[in-house]
């Protein structure tokens, strides 16, 4: 499918912003200024952006512990996210959620999730809302190869299938559940699992933005038109550890280097749009600079931000109690 210039620029800008955001976090985390732990999405950008390009605020997504990319792709403000990761009061969750719980319901982002396999049931519910209230919306569960082995995910596939929910299950298979390879932990195949539930599955090259974008278009259109759920099995790679501080000794020597050099989704996108003379490298360079500046600004803002006050400890537990 042909994309217009504005969309192409938007796709590239979003992917680049995610990359900048994550690479910067990689550096900042090492300084010890960021509390807790973070799981970085660098390398997987084409998946989040290729899918979320088809969504508007009425559509819902649920994410994972590795959620920054999905948040940015779904339109959550970078400054609010960065401040949240630093535990600031003006973070998108007031500093109460942190990296693993960034959510912005006004953008249809139902949250990163600290529980592996937490998202798929929620997405069944969001899809049920769309179906019951006839909003025309769809709901997308992003989850990893690790979560694909959770009962919640398999039960959700079944529920979405029997209720014909407008849900899309995007299995982002980066090859590792923490340190355990999916070649070891996943029995059968994602596609056959989907097939077992009567759900169509598309195998997708997650390094190719355009491949993701097209597969997602088909699945989302199908859901919007009442055709029920689909699965995308997106193969991709993460460039950093499971969490920051993971020495990734379980990966092959040079594995990440090779992928970065040969398969990187951003590099590939630049190549594709240049080859097709859709965008020139000059304008892409501008986007690169702007993305870097935006992230730089967000880090400065987050560092300068105030932490929540003592009174904030007790608020926001209930709507009313």
């Amino acid at each position: 499918m042909q994309m217009n210039r504005a969309d192409l620029l938007h796709a590239y800008r979003t992917m680049r912003t995610i990359r900048e955001f994550e690479e910067r976090l990689h550096l900042e985390f090492a300084t010890g200024e960021i509390p807790g732990f973070v799981h970085l999405y660098a390398g997987e950008e084409a998946s989040a952006v290729g899918v979320c390009m088809h969504l508007t605020d009425r559509d819902k997504i649920a994410s994972t512990h590795r959620g920054h990319g999905h948040c940015i792709a779904k339109g959550v403000e970078v400054q609010g996210m960065m401040s949240e990761i630093y535990g600031r009061k003006d973070g998108v969750c007031g500093g109460k959620g942190g990296s693993m719980h960034i959510a912005d319901l006004s953008k249809g982002m139902l949250g990163a999730n600290g529980i592996v396999g937490g998202g798929p049931p929620l997405i069944c519910g969001a899809a049920l809302t769309a179906k019951t209230l006839k909003t025309g919306g769809v709901a997308v569960a992003f989850y990893g190869d690790g979560a694909s082995n959770q009962g919640t995910t398999l039960e959700s596939l079944n529920l979405a299938s029997i209720w014909k929910l407008p849900a899309i299950f995007v299995c982002e298979d980066n090859g590792y559940a923490e340190s355990t390879a999916s070649s070891y932990s996943v029995g059968g195949s994602q596609a056959k699992r989907a097939e077992g539930f009567g759900i169509p599955c598309q195998e997708v090259d997650g390094f190719d933005f355009f491949a993701v974008h097209e597969a997602a278009r088909v699945a989302i259109e199908r859901a919007r038109n009442g055709g029920g759920p689909s699965m995308l099995h997106v193969r991709l790679a993460r460039y950093f550890g499971h969490f920051e501080g993971d020495a990734t000794t379980y990966r092959a020597p040079g594995e990440v280097e090779r992928i970065r050099n040969e398969q990187d989704c951003l590099r590939r996108f630049r190549q594709q749009v240049s080859d097709a003379a859709l965008l020139d490298s000059g304008e892409l360079d501008v986007v690169d600079r702007e993305a870097a500046e935006a992230v730089e600004l967000s880090v400065r803002g987050a560092k300068a931000g105030a932490p929540p006050t003592e009174a904030d400890l007790l608020t926001d537990v209930y709507v009313a109690y």
């Binding site: 929620l122 519910g125 049920l128």
Partner: peptide, 16 residues
Amino acid sequence: ESAYIGAAAGAAATGL
């Protein structure tokens, strides 16, 4: 139960 109680939570957070 995992799926439908979770779905109920998701539905509640999105308008039902």
